[in-house]
Design a protein around this nucleic acid. Structure first.
Ligand SMILES: [Mn+2]
Ligand SMILES: [Mn+2]
Ligand SMILES: [Mn+2]
Ligand SMILES: [Mn+2]
Lengths: 159, 159
DNA sequence: CAATATTGTTAGCCAAGGCTAAACTATTTG
DNA sequence: CAAATAGTTTAGCCTTGGCTAACAATATTG
């Protein structure tokens, strides 16, 4: 605290609801979000490739581009990265396939995505909205919360 | 569909749970997420500045840096951007303040953040986890879902 | 009040994730 | 089977959001 605003304590508005969390904890919140942002696009690609393989038998760059509403150049560059990460295998001008690691990631992401989507529907959110919200939320839901969401959805169904 | 994988329909695994959504709808999911990503960091900064002003009477770059676990250079650069967006006013080496627009954004973001946090706690998520999850989820929750979360939390409290 | 410590800014670097335009390959069709 | 169409890749550009290192301003303290 400095002298630059000597009235600080006087001008502070009436205390709002919650206090600020301790610095360490607060920092952890943001750090966790930054971390999720590093992996989430990768997860969405891998998950989508897995879905295309499962439902269509093949996963072509053009399909990914139109489903993600992104240019083919963007997809092509991303595929190179997925290759470097050894999540997919690809021969030029041919369908993509998932490596072992890629399949594992696809399954995990798909499972998590489904839990969030089904939870939102069980809560009473309209399907189209639930799908949009789930696409973003899924990457920021801890295992703890995920387990609670799943339990909630099941209880909702048995009643 | 091409001839490159003539066994596509034969090799397709037994149909998983849900079908793929129509291309347009699927694309909308990802586009909405990309959109949220463009604004979320701005929202977090503005919200934090508002919180610091409310609880401490001033918002210094150094506080933001330590609460976000980010370098002071990163904060300094971001402040320039917030200035350009006319969300904050700042004199060099002095505390930040929010413009009208900044205050409005801070209130909206804080309100939304609180609804998500309180909802997670009402669901039964431990406080520390709820705070981490809320920090990321808040930016991907539609107004529709937000309203449902708020109602759920209230009902939980009156019982 | 001078020296030191803290705080803030600037410059320059990097990776990620978008884009368009142009070139190349493969598939389909006349 | 040649030409046209569709799909893929590459090159080069841009913005965002990180970083470190060096420097500048302010605040604290012996
Ligand atoms: Mn997903
Ligand atoms: Mn997603
Ligand atoms: Mn927030
Ligand atoms: Mn946030």
């Amino acid at each position: 605290m400095t002298d630059s605003n000597p009235n600080a304590s006087l001008t502070a508005p009436s205390i709002p609801g919650d206090a600020l969390p301790p610095v360490e904890q607060h920092a952890q919140q943001y750090a966790t979000v930054r971390n999720a942002h590093e992996t989430e696009l990768i997860e969405d690609y891998v998950e989508l490739i897995g879905d295309l393989l499962a439902h269509r038998g093949e996963a072509r760059a053009a399909d990914i581009a139109s489903r993600m509403a992104v240019s083919q150049a963007t997809v092509s560059k991303m595929i190179r990265r997925l290759n470097e990460l050894e999540l997919v295998t690809s021969k030029p001008y041919r369908s993509l396939f998932l490596t072992e690691a890629g399949q594992k990631m696809a399954e995990t992401s798909r499972a998590r995505h489904d839990i969030v989507l089904h939870f939102l529907r069980a809560l009473g959110v309209r399907d189209a909205t639930a799908r949009i919200d789930a696409e973003g939320m899924e990457h920021h839901v801890s295992d703890e919360t995920l387990a609670i969401m799943q339990r909630f959805t099941e209880q909702q169904q048995n009643s």
